[in-house]
Design a binder for these strands. Sequence first.
RNA 1: GGAGAGGUGGCUGAGCGGCUGAAAGCACCGCACUCGAAAUGCGGCAUACGGGCAACUGUAUCGGGGGUUCGAAUCCCCCCCUCUCCGCCA
Length: 423
Amino acid sequence: MHDIRSIRENPEAFDAGLARRGLPAISAELLALDTSARTLALTRQNAEARRNELSRQIGAAMKAGDSETAQRLKAEVESLRAALDDGRASEDEVAAALRARLEVLPNLPDETVPDGADETANVEVRRWGEPRTLGFQARSHFEIGAGLGLMDFEGAAAVAGARFVVLRGALARLERALAAFMVDLHTAEFGYVEIAPPLLVRSEAVYGVGQLPKFEDDLFRTTDGRWLISTAEVSLTNLVRERILREADLPMRLTADTPCFRSEAGAAGRDTRGMMRMHQFRKVELVSVVAPEESAAEHERMTACAEEVLRRLELPFRTMLLCAGDMGAAARRTYDLEVWLPSEGRYREISSCSSCGDYQARRMNARYRTADGRNLPVHTLNGSGLAVGRTMVALLENHQQADASVVIPPALRPWMGGMERIG
RNA sequence: GGAGAGGUGGCUGAGCGGCUGAAAGCACCGCACUCGAAAUGCGGCAUACGGGCAACUGUAUCGGGGGUUCGAAUCCCCCCCUCUCCGCCA
């Protein structure tokens, strides 16, 4: 949610930011509504001030036993009423219209974000690792999984339908090991606090991170009106909703290993084979809540935390700075981590680390108290550290062997009970 | 699911139709006292949005929404949340 005051101060910059997102200028319309709302409010407030004053006089008159004066004053208040009610109604209407326009607008891109309409304009900022030369035809993760007999899409379809998978034995263990490995890394070495959050959340929480009201179609809703989290970002970020934090509470760094649920509406036909795009997948999420001046540095730090997972698992990746047109709505600046997939011969997204500025904080009303006693919106960041399902895909494909087995990278072996190889 | 109790400022907690944006205490910030500190005393200290060059000032906010009333933290209705007991249950 944008601060209407900042739009008032610099409407050109606001529209320019939206333009980078590929959106038309809207500041003139917003400011017209804003002016109208303020004018109506001022008129209403003056009428209310008058009414309050008269009410005080009525009280005084009644106390003095002067019921005649009291009656006369009551009549006068009555005459204010119609105007007051009308004014309030139109004020509410204008305010609602302004809000409806504001709450669906995405965040403005940071100055350091490159221009561009889609992923082709993203900028590679670094690359790590060399894709292995296999010496044989790379098999896809689902071929490997099928070969091992431990990845079952048919069974999953029978139980749940398309876009689900059933893992067995060593692969089920592998998923659990990867998640535990990631959480342990982030807590033990990077200072994140592990959280076991709700997976079903209320609308207010989804609204707070910016996924409602605009992206309702991407989510699953329960019969009692709650939502299944599409990412633990929703649960973790909202932990500070409606709170005033002390400066000493910041930075707040949280991590959680949770399933994520996405309807994948609009993704029909994409990634239909394998487990790249599921209705349910496991993800270790990172969330930071920081003071505004810290958010840029925190963004780099968080991205580095996610990258470290890939380094330790010996998975080649590149880090992309997303262009303005390719970022999610809440983000001001985003790095995507893309891991090498031998079967596709290209890099695929495995993590997305975003700095959201005060966009989510305003929607959640999450603030912190500065040393000089002001309450300012915090800055929030979130990132995958990493998407566990896709990490497993990358691990299987990158560490596959000619004999159809898969070598478990040494860093992960403690979480696999010492196992060195699957198959 | 049934019965009951309750949600007030950063925290605790009074108020239960007008003098209450809200007592008191704690916390916090000034000042005094002190060589310094503690203790003590005095003063200050909610948030949001407006108006005003400013001093200052208006409105709203006592979980959320609606209603009654000239006037609501206080009365009525609906919803949300918390707690206690009973039932059910991983």
